[in-house]
Every structure is written in C-alpha cells, then in structure tokens.
C-alpha cells in the first residue's frame, strides 16, 4: 500500500459518494479502497504466507558475561542483584571452535545464498573485550575460512563494546581483522552519559572521549551505539557535534527497556521516537546512517513488508554463551532461558526446531492485536522479552508497546515527508 494525497474537497466528495473517477481509480490501485469484498482478507492471507521461516544468518558470540561497568539502564540486568546470575567463566578456544562449526552448519541449512548475502557475527557480552584473546582468535579463524567455506565468504564481524578497554594496539588489531567496532556512548556530555558507570559508580565519559581521540589520531572511524537516555534525547545538537568532531558516519539508536531496576515515564517512548526522526532529518543530508529509521524508510519507500525488527523474531539468530550453550535471544543470557542446546549438538537444525519456529512467528503480521494498525507494514514489532515484562500473563505473544509508538510516529513522518517532496515538486 502506498499513500494517495487528495485535497480536503476531494475527500469530502469521496465521503459524499461523488468522487472523481481518476481519484477513485488511484485509491483502488493503491488498495485504499477495496475492489471487492474479501480483498483485505486475501491480502492478509497472502502476506502471512510470506512470513520467513527460521533461517540462520547471524550469531552472537558472548565472549564473556562479565562486565567492568554497571550501567544503570543495563537491559541484561548486569548492574544489580542479578549480576550474580552471570557466569564468571569466559569462552574458551574449544567452545569457540565448536561454535564456529555449529554456526557454519546452520548457515548451510538456511538456504540463503551467502555469495549475495552477508552472514554476520557479533561479539557481545558482558563486555566482550574482557576476553580479547578469543575475539582475536575467532576473527582470525573466520578470515582463514573465508576462501574455504562459501557461507563465510562475505561474513561481517562487529563488536559491541563499552569502549573502556580499547587501546591503540587493540584498535589497530580490530581494524586489521575487519571487525567493525561499535562504541556505546550516549551523547557529548557527562550529563547525557550519566547512566554509564563502572562497578564503583564512577562515570566513564572521560575515558570514552580519550578512546575516540585515539580513533581520530589513527584515522579510523568507529560506529556508535547510542542508548536514548532521557538526557540524551534532550541534546541532539550535542550528539551532532560529537559525530562531526570524530567523523562518525554510522550509528544505531537503542530505545531503552524497562526492568525491575529501571523504569521509564510513559511519555518517554513518544519523545524518543521524535528524537530519532529529528536526527534523521539532520543525518540525511550528511549521509549518516541510523539503523532503526532506515529499516522503516526502506520498507516504506519500497512497499516491502518489514516482518521483523529483531534477529531473534526473524528466526535468524543464534546466541553462543561462554559455556557453549546455544540460545535464541541474548536478552535471556542471565537466566539462560531458551538456551536449548549446546555447541556439541551436531544434529541441531534451527529450521525445524520448535523454539526457532515459534520465535519466527512473532511478527506483528501474525498478531491479531496489530491487524488494524496503520503502521503494520513497516513495524516489524519490538522485543518480546520487553513486552512480556510489561504484560507477563501473555508470555512472549504480546505487543511491545515501545514499537507501537515508534512505528506509528515514524509512519506519520514518512507520509508527511513524501507529501512535502511530491507537493514541492509540483509547486516548484
């Protein structure tokens, strides 16, 4: 479906039943007016048949569950009593080798053409750089295997790090290995970063700026992972100045999650969504990519259904815990919920595993509560774990209200943006 822009008079005529033929035809072509009874049901039935089945294309290597920080909004809960749930044993070389083998098997089962599509490895934690030796080992191993194993030919590797353990030597090594570095920083001031603290409660902002200075000195560009704290979304100019200073060309925004330790006001999601849109307006002329809104824009501009905004609910993701257990969602790391097998399981196939099939069905397209939503096509849903936290009775099969606000707000912006472009052209 694509929007059709009519005048208020045309709209009044439409409601009165005497609409111009040209407009009527356009509204019918764009499926805004049904051409026959049952057309909506036909379309929905067809779209539901297109929901992708589990096909693994990415994995998380949890190199260490330990973290040297205790950020106040940590969605893993690695900042509280839950901290004792996390293992203190880091991933070994033996587990890493078996995890690579396990991942390759799933890539081969997936049916995806990895000569055209990139498989993806994300090094994660805890703080993954605590176990830098194994990160280096896995990255070297993947690079050695590229020419021998087709599904790894274009494998992309990235690390999500709090940045505090990056040194000049490590920055150069990661760059040489082809590992994209995403540094968690929430803005250009101490205030914007006040949620990011070490175990003793000390703020780490100054240490992050020192690391970014190292990157600048080495002429290497990191990406940023920006969690949208309540202070962050009040200071877009500050974030823009930080990005300009360090020549940042890519970043991802994280809309915060609620937990027992961290609650957010109801109006937060609306404000965060507006911040993402305001950022996009600034980034667009500069050629700076922000992941979250680009997924919505791609869906809108290409009339493609965005089935899932999450690797796990796309049925496309594996998570390797340091002890070799294999799960589907890294947010469940502390309790190891849904870690259902191990790297030693040579018979596992995600495509026919009930858990991966269930998660792949968690798209809003299959959710009856979402069917009448105007943003259904571009939404992709949110995080089932966050949704369950807000509404435990329904389990994982419940709407993540964060994604509702974000999707609807973004859709309104995209429609207005398209209108401004199209109408500006005719006026010009």
């Amino acid at each position: 479906m694509q929007p059709v822009f009519v005048t208020q008079k045309d709209y009044a005529d439409l409601l009165a039943g005497n609409c111009e033929d040209e407009i009527m035809q356009e509204l019918t072509n764009k499926k805004i007016i049904l051409s026959h009874d049952g057309e909506d049901e036909d379309v929905l039935s067809w779209v539901r048949k297109q929901v992708p089945q589990p096909s693994i294309s990415l994995c998380y290597f949890i190199l260490s569950e330990r973290c040297n920080l205790a950020c106040k909004y940590c969605f893993l809960g690695n900042n509280s009593e839950r901290r004792k749930l996390f293992s203190t044993n880091d991933m070994s070389r033996e587990v890493a080798d078996r995890a690579i083998d396990f991942f390759v098997r799933q890539l081969n089962f997936s049916g995806i053409d990895f000569e055209k599509n990139a498989s993806q490895i994300i090094f994660f934690g805890g703080e993954p750089l605590i176990n830098f030796e194994i990160l280096e080992y896995v990255a070297q191993r993947i690079n050695e295997l590229r020419s021998k194993i087709p599904v790894l030919m274009s494998c992309e590797m990235s690390v999500i790090t709090n940045g505090t353990l990056l040194t000049k030597e490590r920055i150069i090594k990661l760059n040489d290995l082809g590992v994209t570095v995403n540094i968690s920083i929430d803005g250009s001031t101490k205030e914007a970063n006040e949620m990011r603290v070490d175990i003793a409660g000390n703020e780490v902002f100054d240490r992050l700026i020192a690391v970014l200075d190292l990157y600048k000195e080495l002429h290497i560009k990191p990406s940023l992972s920006v969690s949208l704290s309540e202070k962050t979304i009040k200071d877009l100019p500050g974030l823009l100045s930080l990005m300009e200073k360090y020549d940042i060309k890519g970043l991802g925004y994280n809309i915060l999650l609620c937990s027992d330790n961290y609650q957010l006001p109801d109006e937060y999601y609306e404000k965060a969504s507006k911040f993402i849109i305001d950022s996009f307006k600034e980034f667009r002329p500069l050629g700076i990519y922000e992941d979250r809104i680009m997924r919505k824009l791609n869906s809108f501009a290409h009339s493609q259904i965005h089935f899932s905004d999450c690797g796990a609910t796309a049925g496309g993701q594996l998570v390797f815990a340091p002890d070799g257990r294999v799960g589907i969602c890294h947010e469940m790391l502390a309790d190891k919920e849904n870690f259902v097998t191990t790297v030693n399981d040579t018979t596992f196939n995600a495509k026919n595993n009930p858990l991966w099939q269930e998660w792949a069905s968690l798209t809003p397209i299959n959710c009856d509560d979402c069917i009448k939503c105007e943003a259904l096509g571009i939404c992709g849903g949110g995080c089932p774990v966050n949704a369950r936290y807000k509404n435990p009775a329904k389990g994982l099969h419940v709407v993540d209200e964060r994604s509702c606000v974000h999707a609807k707000t973004t859709l309104r912006f995209l429609i207005e943006d398209l209108y401004n472009i199209a109408s500006g052209k005719t006026q010009g």
Binding site: V4, V6, Y253, R284, G287, N298, L418, A422, S423
Partner: peptide, 20 residues
C-alpha cells in the same frame, strides 16, 4: 490530487544510499 512518482521515494533518501 498530488501525483507521487518513484523519484519522490528516492528523494526521501537524500544523500543516503538506497539499500546496538
């Protein structure tokens, strides 16, 4: 009625190339 062309959708990308 405002006519929307394919080029209008492309323009939404600005200086961004088309395809945490």
């Amino acid at each position: 009625m405002v006519q929307v062309e394919k080029e209008d959708y492309k323009e939404m990308y600005g200086n961004l190339d088309e395809p945490c």
